[in-house]
Write a protein that binds this DNA or RNA. Sequence first.
DNA 1: TGATACGAAATCGTATATGGTCTGGGCCGA
DNA 2: TCGGCCCAGACCATATACGATTTCGTATCA
Lengths: 239, 239
Amino acid sequence: MTQPGSKSRAAYEWIRERIETGRFTPGYRLVLDAIAREIGISAVPVREAIRLLEAEGLVTFERNVGAQVAFMHEQEYEYTMQTLALVEGAATALSAPRLTGDHIARARSINDQLADSLKLESFDPRRFTELNLAFHTVLFQKCPNPHIADLVGRGWKRLTVLRDSVFGFVPGRARESVGEHEALLRLIEAGEAPLTIELAARDHRLGTLHAVLAYQAGRRHAAPAVGRNPSTHLTREQP
Amino acid sequence: MTQPGSKSRAAYEWIRERIETGRFTPGYRLVLDAIAREIGISAVPVREAIRLLEAEGLVTFERNVGAQVAFMHEQEYEYTMQTLALVEGAATALSAPRLTGDHIARARSINDQLADSLKLESFDPRRFTELNLAFHTVLFQKCPNPHIADLVGRGWKRLTVLRDSVFGFVPGRARESVGEHEALLRLIEAGEAPLTIELAARDHRLGTLHAVLAYQAGRRHAAPAVGRNPSTHLTREQP
DNA sequence: TGATACGAAATCGTATATGGTCTGGGCCGA
DNA sequence: TCGGCCCAGACCATATACGATTTCGTATCA
């Protein structure tokens, strides 16, 4: 299925693309025959595609009833980011000792691009997110544990569905990020203890999460109930 | 599919049971028609079952070629336990503040049973593992993040395929476990910081992992290259 | 003898067909 | 008017059928 050329794959991408771009909104019913007819294939591969989307949490499924685009509650972003903070932190720490000077240089170069993108009069949050992923990918790519690496990949993939780019909402956080990136690089260069690196990487991601949550709280209540500073606890205080 | 009553589900359980009990050994080819005929259904639901097993990593799959029971290298157990240490530690820490005295009492009661099972002249490692899961389930069950909770469940499920019970190999570790359980309970009761609890729970699991790795190294080299004590780093020294 | 090409068997991927299950609307009785 | 029953339509789950792809044995040729 993951293999290109298959119709299941085509159906998967066809549906996913529509969910990502918002043409299929949460609750939209995915009817096998209808989709199959529209793509010009039979229902069998469509069914398989939907099963895969279900496994990714993009659609919900009920036997004898069918599938619909999953409802994502407010907290979905929080849960995903919290999980990503956890696994990406670990992946980065496990990867760190295996990174060469070359890797660090590459990461630093990407971070420079991130810094540059801040200076443009028209800040492009989408591009910032793209570069941000590239930066972190360099850092965790050497993670020797394939399960953890896989979870990191899933987390990022899921984020693409939840938010195109949160940095559009919290541009200030983008600026902070660049500084934290450099700090993280220094820790790695210095050969700091894995746990130190893990918690730094974790905090970095939680920092973005908290910024977004604070922004949302602000929008809701006019008086922003600012969360605490990023904490390594994966948690934040309840209001 | 996850729903009972479906033939996909039946096929899934039929295959999985054979893999778990070792009747289907790694490398065994899973031929759709053959399995379908043997179960008495058509190939379509069997195919779906195999896709699910693939997602769980129990079988590997190649387009136009088919599926076979996944080869699990030596390190598979290590990777799975390391990942479980990571996510279970977090789940436990996130769950801890939501646990009532009732939960703690229940966990302690299970730990008593674990202690009792050590005293029996015939130690039953399988039962120990069962109770052990029950104990930890009490502790992380209140984890509010469904993604992390899900990952914990997957980790445990995967372990059932990898090893029936490692405590048969390292009975000494069973004894240690009981003590660490009590220590963990005290941390939770005392309302310690989430990170403290997280790392304690993580270390607890890594302890078992390291014990098993040391045992394996001992079997291989006669002179056991004992790993370091459990570390919160998720890592251990290379020999 | 070894390499290559051909062809048949095995097996997968997908289309089409069919029976089963759920859902919603209309009819009937209170 | 309202609630319950029944039926028809929609849709899913699975079976069967068939073309497509891979694999592997065998024959042919250098």
